[in-house]
Design a protein around this nucleic acid. Structure first.
Length: 552
RNA sequence: GCGCCCGUAGCUCAAUGGAUAGAGCAUCAGCCUUCUAAGCUGAGGGUUACUGGUUCGAGUCCAGUCGGGCGUACCA
């Protein structure tokens, strides 16, 4: 809808002889009494043209030529806005397109022929997923969905590490619990994983092997058991939320030689050496970020010989360039905020186009239960588990609550609210609109024989003209705009808000306009409008990954 | 100390640099013999933390101050 106006305004500017370098911008007025759309082009160009903005606006209007039956009124208002009013008939004929396109309505072509990789969750297998991880997981999943609606070919990737220090601590933790079960006198270190799941893993080992493992030197058997159990639990939890990945990228592969070539990690070091950004001191290998104005250099290879996380991170991103992704989107929590600038700097030095990398950082989650907030740490084992939350409020509420606030805002997850079955709870408010429409359609089939599946001609919609009908129709047409905006900002929250306002318009329409009880022709038209609403709700729910219940 | 994020109604949050800063909750007042009241309508409630700046116009951009969160590892 937005782009509908642009060419006509551009033409009008041209034929009025107005030269402006400013782009034509279409927006929605704050108040509908100002119209359906407006443009500020006269305000923007006024200075350049040395003319009064209102005069300029009037001039533009004189040259505007819209196709008949589309725009019913054009106004100059306020300091120089040009306001457009769409004709009700135009709105309703446009709604017909929604029914014609069905689940394709709202799809765009901006990403046609392009590929994107979205990296999200990426938790190492050291413990069950916590609520905080869930937010990033849902955010990433929705971003991937949004990319797909615009035609991108999307790879959903999970980057993990099953080696290194944390995994060693994990294996030791299991071993301590196992030794306890064997009756050994051990003290469980405070530095290790305290969670109950460690005990569960140890118990399984004890049942299978009795005390035999107590004498084994290596940690391998403990590590493997822990990794298998924990990874499975992570995948099960993700699956419950409808989060899936196409690709699991194991950091470990970056440490391995590739036939005749050095390992990807080593190649990063070599390349940075040749650019003069590597130093060796204190027994470690350093990325000389002080050369870039930073306070300290950063360790790439520790004095133990092991790479720190930064090195494989750089190498990992190079694989994304090697795999020729057009867009690379990383989703992670605020605790990783210090991680990416160094990676980007290194990639820039090595000549990669870091403009293709986008970072979506989500702030932390606190849960509120009776005003109590919980502080989380996987290590201490007192974290709120994502699984428990899903048990408590269900997958749909979990998903929606994670994305119904801007990702930059701290999220206050009100568990009580998420469980409520009233309109206070946005999940129910949205789903109820959908269920209500399904119920109507069922009843229509029963009582009047109206079968929406057999309708091929949507012209009946053109009979509608009452304010709540027009408002609803208009709202439906906004869906593609919000799909694009949500993606542009990497912010599914925009979609949530749009759907909420759509549901609101539907409920109002429902309240004001009898549907089954109206005259047959009007009734049919209103059923079609309801059907279009259901379609848009479904398309939106699909992006957000929540279910569309047929009855509630 | 330094870096990133946040500060908007009593509470939880919106507002691509635009017009009178909006929703929901809570409070108060209405709407069911009528398609799902799991809903709708209305009222009150604000110095957008503070001080300057940029411009036709600032909650939004810039600088500074105050307050909160997260980082600031040879953990990831």
């Amino acid at each position: 809808m937005y782009e509908f106006f642009v060419p006509f305004i551009t033409d009008a500017l041209k034929s009025a002889g107005i030269e402006t370098g400013k782009p034509v911008h279409i927006e929605q007025p704050s108040d509908r009494k100002f119209g359906d759309f407006s443009t500020n082009i006269a305000l923007l160009s006024a200075k350049e043209c040395r003319r009064n903005p209102r005069e300029l606006a009037a001039e533009v209007i004189r040259h505007l030529k819209f196709p008949p039956g589309t725009v019913s009124k054009i106004d100059v208002a306020g300091p120089g806005f040009i306001n457009f009013f769409l004709s009700p008939l135009f709105i309703m004929t446009s709604v017909e397109q929604i029914l014609a396109r069905g689940d394709q309505f709202g799809k765009g072509t901006a990403g046609k022929g392009l590929t994107a990789v979205v990296e999200y969750v990426s938790a190492n297998p050291t413990g069950p997923l916590t609520i905080g991880r869930g937010r990033g997981g849902v955010l990433g999943d929705c971003i991937a969905n949004l990319l797909e609606t615009q035609g991108y070919r999307v790879t959903r990737e999970y980057y993990y590490n099953d080696a290194g220090k944390q995994m060693t601590i994990l294996a030791e933790s299991v071993r301590y619990r196992y030794l306890e079960l064997c009756g050994h006198d051990t003290v469980f270190p405070a530095t290790h994983y305290q969670g109950a799941y460690i005990r569960d893993i140890a118990e399984v080992l004890f049942m299978e092997h009795s005390t035999v493992l107590a004498d084994t030197e290596g940690l391998e058997v403990f590590k493997e058991a822990a990794e298998t159990v924990i990874f499975n639990s992570i995948r099960v939890t993700l699956e419950r939320l409808g989060i899936r990945h196409d690709s699991f990228f194991n950091e470990h592969t970056l440490y391995l030689k590739e036939s005749e070539r050095a390992s990807p990690n080593q190649r990063v070091i070599d390349a940075l050496v040749s650019k003069g950004f590597i130093g060796f001191y204190d027994g470690a290998t350093w990325f000389l970020t002080t050369k870039l104005g930073q306070e300290k250099d950063k360790v790439l290879i520790k004095s133990t010989g092991e790479p720190s996380y930064r090195l494989p991170d750089i190498a990992y991103h190079i694989t994304k360039f090697d795999r020729k992704f057009d867009r690379m989107i990383n989703v992670f929590g605020a605790d990783h905020i210090d991680e990416y600038p160094d990676v980007l700097e290194a990639l820039k030095i090595l000549g990669y186009d870091t403009g293709r990398i986008e970072i979506a950082i989500n702030q932390f989650v606190t849960t509120t239960v009776d005003g109590q907030t919980l502080k989380m740490s996987t290590r201490k084992g007192n974290a709120d588990l994502l699984d428990d939350l899903i048990d408590d409020v269900g997958a749909d509420a979990t998903r929606l609550f994670f994305i119904m606030r801007g990702k930059d805002s701290h999220l206050n997850f009100d568990v009580e609210l998420a469980k409520k079955q009233t309109k206070d709870n946005p999940v129910f408010y949205l789903q109820y609109a959908h269920a209500r429409i399904c119920s109507l359609l069922r009843m229509a089939l029963q009582e009047t024989g109206f079968n929406h599946e057999h309708v091929v001609d949507y012209k009946a919609l053109r009979r509608l003209e009452s304010p709540s009908e027009i408002q609803l129709g208009f709202s439906l047409l906004e869906y593609p705009h919000w799909a694009r905006t949500s993606l542009r900002l990497l912010e599914p929250q925009k979609m949530v808000e749009y759907l909420h306002s759509l549901a609101e318009h539907y409920h109002r329409f429902y309240q004001e306009c009898p549907i089954l009880k109206a005259d047959r022709e009007i009734s049919e038209a209103r059923l079609l409008l309801s059907l279009a609403t259901r379609q848009v709700l479904r398309n939106g729910f699909r992006v957000l990954g929540i279910s569309a219940p047929e009855s509630m």
